[in-house]
């Protein structure tokens, strides 16, 4: 039994445009599964659907064998208690400083002890290299710093699985590495992650499994070596070829 099991997941935008077309994925404990593919292939939508931000049309999502009912608020809430997501655009709460961004949900939503949470949050922010920015507001931080706050915020919820949605796509090139380094640290700690990314070098280095998607479908699944060095399908060969050429 896998930790997260996605089976035949289908989703549409406005009930018309098919963005996910029967996607099946398995993620085991401690695995790092990366999803790659051209823009508009449905990678980000996959994460949004799993998080319950977009209702699926069909298919199942199972957590430790228990099916998630996306029509049921309780079920979605329970799922969100175990998952965290980091967005491409950071989406920090603009009215709170870095520390408050990290502590708000554990304290106000999970009702954990405020002092303990704060101590943990300071540690987390230190871990992502922002120990000196605790009281900076989002508009005083660079994109890379904001994204690292967002990662710390996601971790403060003690997720079993962390979803990373193109977390470096909105960053200036020189800021990408500081965020990737933060993710590397998590990988070393054995965090289970699902990563949507365009940073192919990074994907190759960190992933236990790589999934290639196109037009809402899974094209190929395999180890990083297989996908990048020896892709089986022509569509995957094409995509990887284009990316590795430059």
């Amino acid at each position: 039994m896998h930790h997260l099991e996605v089976d035949g997941l289908t989703a549409t935008y406005d009930g018309k445009i098919l963005v996910l077309d029967g996607v099946s994925i398995q993620v085991g404990k401690g695995e790092i599964v990366s999803v790659i593919g051209p823009s508009g292939s449905g990678k980000s939508t996959l994460l949004r659907v799993i998080m319950g931000l977009l209702k699926p049309k069909a298919g199942h999502v199972k957590l430790d064998g228990d099916e998630v009912d996306y029509g049921n608020k309780k079920s979605v809430k329970a799922l969100r208690d175990r998952f965290s997501i980091v967005f491409q655009q950071f989406n920090l709460f603009q009215n709170m400083d870095a520390l408050r961004n990290v502590t708000i949900a554990p304290v106000k939503i999970r009702k954990r002890d405020a002092q303990k949470v704060e101590k943990e949050a300071i540690e987390l922010l230190g871990k992502v290299g922002l120990g000196d920015k605790l009281h900076s507001y989002p508009d005083e931080l660079s994109g890379g710093q904001q994204q690292r706050v967002a990662i710390a915020r996601a971790l403060a919820l003690r997720p079993e699985i962390l979803l990373l949605d193109e977390v470096t796509s909105a960053l200036d090139p020189e800021l990408v590495n500081e965020v990737l380094d933060a993710i590397r640290i998590l990988a070393k700690d054995g965090m289970t992650m699902m990563i949507v990314s365009h940073e192919m070098g990074f994907v190759r280095e960190i992933s236990t499994e790589v999934i290639m998607m196109d037009e809402g479908k899974v094209i190929e699944v395999g180890s990083a070596e297989q996908i990048f060095d020896n892709p089986q399908t022509s569509r995957c060969q094409d995509f990887v070829g284009k990316i590795l050429r430059h």
Binding site: M51, G52, L53, K77, R80, D81, S84, I85, F87, Q89, N91, F93, Q94, A105, K108, I109, R110, L157
Partner: peptide, 16 residues
């Protein structure tokens, strides 16, 4: 809207 989504994903209720 992303601020709503983010809070939503962190299990904030509407009022929260």
């Amino acid at each position: 809207q992303t601020q709503w989504d983010t809070a939503d994903a962190m299990n904030f209720s509407r009022l929260q």
